[in-house]
């Protein structure tokens, strides 16, 4: 299927070209989100291996990663210049919200970790 492979190649190429135009701060956020989701996946795999015994620890471990990923995505939406919905919101304010939410999240995680 040479045609399908070349199509996929073209698709990825156009995607990466488009992504190259993304501002650096959004790229940093993307990297952070990928790291967080990867950590969460590793933990789910580990739980499948050893069982769900300290279930609260498992939940807090996974949820801390998922939570930071979700918060980072929210931050990305708010600081994106192309996003017209939040054009009145200064990026400093968005980052402050992000920090506050992270503090609350990790406070809960530490309490739940056991």
């Amino acid at each position: 299927m040479p045609r399908a492979t070349s199509d996929a190649k073209l698709l990825i190429q156009s995607l990466s070209n488009a992504y190259a135009a993304t501002p650096t701060n959004l790229k940093i956020i993307d990297l952070y989100v990928i790291c967080a989701v990867a950590t969460a996946l590793i933990q789910v795999a580990y739980m499948g291996l050893v069982g769900s015994f300290p279930f609260n620890s498992f939940l807090s471990g996974v949820l801390s990663c998922i939570g930071t990923a979700v918060l980072a995505v929210c931050l990305r939406i708010q600081v994106n210049k192309d996003n017209k919905e939040f054009k009145d919101l200064p990026p400093e304010r968005a980052f402050a919200d992000f920090v506050l939410c992270n503090l609350v999240l990790h406070l809960v995680i530490m309490n739940f970790l056991g």
Binding site: I29, Y32, A36, T39, Q43, F53, F95, H106, L113
Partner: peptide, 25 residues
């Protein structure tokens, strides 16, 4: 609990990642 150490590590590493990310950002 020994078998929960990966979860502890993950929680603290996501905290650390938060600090590093903030700094870099």
């Amino acid at each position: 609990i020994t078998s929960a150490y990966p979860y502890y590590t993950a929680s603290f590493s996501s905290m650390g990642a938060f600090f590093i990310f903030s700094f870099v950002y």
